[in-house]
């Protein structure tokens, strides 16, 4: 898969995002890392230019509540509802449902194993092969966890 790994918002810690990017690479995926502090508009443009299948978002600042719905909406509004979105970083349990309701397909918090993230991508890939959508705009509510 071609995956964009992005850091939205203002937090400046990307060790986690880099570790994930690296392990996705080792899992045979093409990973584009955006660098720190990208706006939702920049992220959606990057996903478009790179024609990515998936977007991984890492946020630690607590701004996911605002940023993630905005990114999901931008993707849907610009014809990229087929792009799959997953999250990592610090997303409190109580916010998970809201994130999923905007089209996020998986959330990987601290302690997640990279093998699990790779299985999630494999699973998503086989669903896509079967013609089922895993994109942010998909209404059937499929989620990994």
């Amino acid at each position: 898969m071609k995956i964009v790994m992005a850091k939205p918002g203002l937090d400046g810690h990307d060790r986690g995002a880099k570790v994930i990017a690296r392990s996705l690479r080792d899992g045979g995926h093409e990973v584009v890392y955006t660098g720190l502090r990208r706006t939702p508009e920049q992220i959606s443009r990057i996903v478009m230019d790179e024609d990515a299948n998936a977007l991984g978002l890492s946020t630690l600042s607590g701004a996911h509540d605002v940023l993630i719905p905005r990114i999901c909406k931008l993707l849907k509004d610009t014809g990229m509802g087929d792009v799959m979105v997953f999250l990592g970083g610090i997303i409190p349990e109580r916010d998970h449902e809201k994130m999923f309701s905007h089209g996020v397909r998986a959330i990987f918090g601290p302690g997640s194993r990279t093998e699990d993230i790779l299985s999630f991508l494999d699973d998503a890939e086989s669903r896509t092969d079967l013609g089922k959508s895993v994109g942010v705009g998909n209404e059937d509510g499929w989620r990994w966890n």
């Binding site: 990017a21 690479r25 080792d26 899992g27 093409e30 990973v31 584009v32 955006t34 660098g35 990057i46």
Partner: peptide, 10 residues
């Protein structure tokens, strides 16, 4: 593995 980390945009 065929995988790649593309970081030029950063």
């Amino acid at each position: 593995t065929g995988g790649a980390l593309l970081g030029d945009r950063v």
